[in-house]
Design a protein around this nucleic acid. Structure first.
Length: 724
DNA sequence: GAGCACTGC
């Protein structure tokens, strides 16, 4: 019987699908009802565009080590290709076909579909692995996972030796993880094709973050046998992209072959405005009602840049509806954006009542992450809110910029999934020509500390020389190296330090948070710090609905600490733990426990999705620090000790009050202000440490704790002694 | 007294 890897299901509804691996397991065991369904599935599979080229593609993979597959939406590439390769014999000798996705949901849903198509139970031949949830076994041969997870696997097995093929899906999205993975895979291919693995080579491999005991594990779990000169089979890499331009990928992989597979999309008519629209919200409003008045049935999807815009357009639509004759009033709006609690997000999937029209006001979430049925019309103002990063100041900000051509195409495609559709771009056609072809890859516009640390742990000493498909600026890399040096993750000659750097690389956290855990174990308050970094790692714990602001504020006050936001977050987490323990004591069932926690969240204006995420992060990193042998102890009521620990951990982000009530960040000399959401917004202590610096209308700092300025030279003398 | 696109380990 195959052994299951540990599985922690973070979503209640998935628990029923956890495979039960008791008793004998056969692939071809169906009941009558299943037969009909199986027939249907086979018909659907055969009708996919990719089905006609199965033999050709398998041949191409046999002949080429790298293949680029450009598959349009609806080609069936993601579900079919892994099965073709399995049937083509790429899993002989127990090797695995790995398929990476940028998003968790995609990895799960595709794995479920493929398992069903193969007629097997999820977790056996077909499985998936994402953070907090591993549904694979030793018998898994087709494994879907997030690209970030495969990067983590590479730390333990640098040659990815259990895989015969790695398929990188949705590569055109160019997430940070995808980009690092592409560089890594290229290196692994070279290493696996040329190397005969001998003890000497293994010594060079340095399985990430580990010393000799892990190397033994590496040797025992790997199919590589040292000292026998046995060849590792070459690694096949397949890059799948939906963008029409495969050139970049092909060039990066030394002129790799590209295969094009047709998609199955309905045509979408594109309309432009005659001239630029000065007020795109107003233009969107007019367009919505033009569609409503002149076009046939079908829902409308409007792309906006953020929550505030969504809320104001929602109001505008509702006002205008009231002015219409009653017969035309059958139109209503539904908002969707990621910070919206999930029960409210679900409203977009409810079909509109017969005879009425649904207008979905969405952020980018509807571009790729969420697919909403019933849409025939897309309204696209052509703008997007994007993260940008200034490596000189180290400041991230969100700016509104024009979409790329590829993005505009992706948006319009949302109208053609169920039938022919129409897309109304709220800008002139000449403007479209001026747009960038593709969005700038994320790796060129974010803080790279994490990437650099991971690369170091993977044995890439020369990060500046790493083979990126598109290299981030030298400045951004140097800035990260410098930060890692100050945190003690690197030695003076920029090598990964041991044990600090190795331990930090092993923790799935921002380097500064990873370091704070190591510091906290020395300060005997690791328990508090584990909670703090878990809570800091998730989005918006507090939920403040517009219509209940007063109540939400009062609820937050009940958790507030005078010392600052960090201890406030610890209070929230501990209160939720108490709520859980009460339920457990009452012998409630798992479902009811979750329900009562959700109720508690609702009553206390806590975003339950964020809290659950924080609890998952907490238990994961708790496991990691215990494995590392760090001492998990609590400072009890001694919050002075904990604040000293916060100062020792986040000394890079210290700020001093100025006469006018603003603050000067000591490391960068930037002027900053306390964000109004902080519990210290009014108190304005003399000296503080903070975690986030975001530029909106002002340079705002968030998540703040009061400290004594004398602690800085005492606890971070290497940094503050000279300035003192 | 403000407002934070979207992912991921």
């Amino acid at each position: 019987m195959p052994s299951m890897a540990s599985s922690k299901v973070n979503d209640g509804e998935n628990s029923s699908q956890k495979p039960q691996l008791n008793g004998k397991f056969t692939e071809k065991h169906f009941r009558d009802g299943d037969l009909a369904r199986r027939k249907l599935i086979q018909q659907q599979r055969k009708s996919l565009p990719i089905a006609s080229v199965e033999r050709r593609i398998v041949e191409e993979v046999r002949k080429n080590d790298t293949l680029i597959i450009v598959g349009e939406t609806g080609s069936g590439k993601t579900t079919q290709l892994p099965q073709f390769l399995f049937n083509g014999g790429f899993c002989l000798d127990g090797k695995v076909i790995g398929v990476t996705q940028p998003r968790r949901v995609a990895a799960v849903t595709v794995a479920k579909r493929v398992a069903e198509e193969c007629g097997v139970q999820l977790g056996h031949k077909v499985g998936y692995s994402i953070r907090f949830e591993d549904v694979t076994s030793s018998s898994t041969r087709i494994k879907f996972m997030t690209d970030g997870l495969l990067l983590r696997e590479a730390l333990l097995d640098p040659l990815l030796s259990k895989y015969s093929v790695i398929i990188v899906d949705e590569a055109h999205e160019r997430t940070v993880h995808t980009d690092v993975l592409l560089g890594l895979l290229k290196g692994v291919q070279i290493a696996r094709s040329r190397s005969t693995i001998q003890q000497t080579n293994l010594n060079k491999l340095k399985p990430g973050g580990e010393t000799s005991d892990k190397k033994d594990e590496f040797l025992s779990t790997s199919s590589l046998k040292p000292c026998q000169g046995e060849k590792v089979s070459p690694l096949k890499v397949i890059i799948m992209s939906a963008s029409l331009d495969a050139r970049g990928f092909s060039e990066f992989f030394g002129g790799a072959r590209a295969v094009h597979i047709q998609g199955r999309q309905y045509p979408v008519d594109i309309f432009y405005t005659f001239q630029a629209e000065p007020d795109y919200l107003d233009a969107a409003l007019i367009t919505i009602f033009q569609i409503h008045g002149e076009e046939g049935p079908g829902d409308i999807l409007v792309f906006l840049t953020g929550q505030e815009e969504i809320e104001s357009l929602e109001r505008l639509v509702q006002e205008k509806v009231k002015q219409l004759p009653e017969a035309s009033q059958k139109i209503f709006t539904v908002p969707i954006y990621s910070a919206l609690p999930s029960d409210q997000q679900m409203q977009v999937f409810k079909p509109a009542p017969p005879g009425s029209r649904k207008v979905i006001l969405a952020t980018n979430i509807a571009e790729t992450s969420v697919t909403i049925p019933g849409i025939r019309y897309v309204v696209d103002p052509g703008l997007v809110k994007a993260r940008s990063y200034n490596p000189v100041t180290g400041m991230e900000s969100l700016i509104i910029i024009p979409t790329s051509k590829a993005q505009a195409l992706q948006r319009s495609g949302r109208a053609g999934r169920e039938g022919p559709g129409k897309c109304f771009r709220l800008y002139a056609e000449t403007e479209f020509g001026k747009l960038m072809d593709a969005t700038v890859p994320e790796i060129k516009r974010c803080n790279l500390s994490n990437v650099v640390l991971q690369l170091k742990a993977l044995g890439v000493d020369d990060v500046l020389g790493f083979d990126f498909m598109e290299k981030p600026s030298r400045m951004a890399i140097l800035k990260s190296l410098e930060q890692l040096l100050v945190l003690g993750a690197l030695t003076d000659d920029y090598k990964l330090s041991d044990p600090v750097g190795r331990q930090m690389a092993r923790l799935p956290l921002d380097p500064i948070y990873a370091k704070s855990l190591i510091v906290a174990s020395e300060f005997h308050c690791l328990e508090e710090m584990l909670i703090t970094v878990a809570m800091l790692s998730v989005e918006s714990i507090f939920y403040v609905p517009k219509e209940k602001q007063e109540e939400a504020r009062a609820a937050r006050k009940s958790f507030a600490s005078l010392e600052g936001d960090h201890i406030t977050l610890v209070n929230v987490f501990r209160a939720s733990t108490e709520c859980l323990e009460k339920s457990k004591k009452a012998n409630m069932k798992e479902k009811s426990i979750e329900k009562s926690l959700n109720k508690w969240c609702w009553e206390n204006f806590i975003n339950s999705r964020s809290l659950r995420h924080a609890r998952d992060v907490h238990s994961q990193i708790q496991g990691h620090v215990q494995q590392m042998g760090l001492l998990v102890s609590s400072c009890g009521d001694d919050m002075l000790q904990f604040r000293r620990c916060l100062a020792a951990s986040f000394f890079l982000n210290a700020a001093l009050k100025q006469p006018d009530g603003s603050y000067r960040a000591l490391a960068s000399s930037q002027m900053v202000q306390i964000h109004p959401s902080s519990v210290l917004f009014r108190a304005k202590p003399e000296c503080i440490i903070f975690n986030e610096l975001v530029r909106t209308n002002h340079n705002y700092i968030r998540n703040i704790t009061r400290i004594d300025p004398l602690w800085l030279p005492e606890l971070a003398p290497q940094y503050y002694a000279a300035q003192n």
